[in-house]
Amino acid sequence: MKKVDKTSSVSIHIQLQSIIKDMIESGELKEGDVLLPEREICKEQEISRMTVNKAINALVSEGILYRKQGKGTFVAQKKKKYQFNNVKGFTEVMKSRGIDIKTDIIKFEILNPDDIIMEKLGITDKRENVYKIKRIRYVENEPFGYEIAYIPEKVCGGMTKGMLDDNSLYKILENEYGYKVARVEQIIDPIQVDTKVSEKLQCEKGRLALSIQRTSYTEDEKIIEYTVTIIRSDKYQYEINIGM
């Protein structure tokens, strides 16, 4: 392991993070490898246990390392990167890239929305119902995201759970109901997953994730979908390319 530079203006724990990252990038440390115990890193680097712990905690939070109680700290699986640069749906994008995906619909219901969902969908009549669809998205057999979608019933009356099985919602809206998504608005926030979401995504409670609120519009500015998706950030990166 490369030594930290105690004369540098860069904090020691930041240097140590960079050293460990470089070891992973170079292949010196591979996925599943165990990191040296903190006390050995302290001795080798001649730095405090607190500094080493701070560096390792930061890398665990980033999903670069993970801990197993009583066994040590290990190199995590390298994050997969997925780009979403257009208004295609998740299923359509992944299938076009030949990526193995699966969708598990865990709840499909029609209900009367609360005030928040009414506002998100631009609904003014309290008598209007919406579809509420909860799905878990899998990429290469690993949970990728937990999604809750809301769609006005009047947009796609008669839609069934079976229609959505491994099919693109956007394709269904276009082919079955004549609504083509022209643009989307997205709000992305970092969050810590709670117990319910951690169980669905098979990750630790408190793990960092991305919450993506997505509102879909037709060409005439009609809102046809509002979705909240929570994506694991320990194994996946969400990349957006903006052309100028």
Rank of each mutant, 00 (worst) to 15 (best):
R183H: 11
I187W: 08
G206K: 10
T103N: 14
D114H: 08
N167C: 08
E44S: 11
K200Q: 10
G158A: 09
Y238P: 00
N57G: 06
D22C: 06
D166A: 07
K132Q: 15
T103E: 15
Y238V: 00
A209V: 05
E147C: 13
K54P: 00
V34G: 05
E147A: 09
E40V: 09
L65P: 01
I101N: 03
K68C: 04
I242R: 12
E219G: 04
S211M: 13
E142C: 08
E31C: 08
N53I: 02
L173G: 00
D125T: 03
D100I: 08
G162M: 09
L59S: 02
Q45E: 11
N85H: 08
Q237N: 13
V93H: 10
K102F: 14
K78T: 08
A149I: 10
F74I: 03
N53P: 00
I14T: 10
G32D: 04
K95L: 13
I151L: 11
Y177V: 02
P190E: 14
I230R: 01
H13M: 07
V181N: 02
E44I: 15
L169Q: 03
M163N: 06
L36G: 00
I116P: 00
I212G: 05
S168Q: 02
G32W: 07
M23K: 13
T103F: 14
L210T: 01
S216W: 06
N241R: 15
T73A: 04
F74C: 04
Y179A: 01
Y138Q: 06
Y177S: 00
Q83E: 15
E109P: 00
P143W: 07
Q237T: 13
F108H: 05
R67Q: 12
L201P: 00
K200R: 13
I172N: 05
L121A: 01
T229P: 00
S11N: 11
Y177A: 02
T124W: 09
K79E: 07
K205T: 14
L29M: 07
P190R: 14
E225R: 05
Y82R: 08
Q213I: 07
L121T: 02
K120E: 12
I212T: 05
D115K: 15
I47V: 14
I117K: 05
K6H: 08
E119H: 10
L173K: 03
V155A: 07
P143L: 06
G243T: 11
K21S: 06
I240G: 03
T218G: 02
Q77T: 12
T227G: 04
D115M: 11
D5Y: 04
V130M: 06
D100T: 06
K126S: 12
V60N: 05
F144S: 01
R183V: 05
T215K: 15
G158S: 08
D5W: 09
G32P: 01
T227Y: 02
V184M: 15
G157I: 03
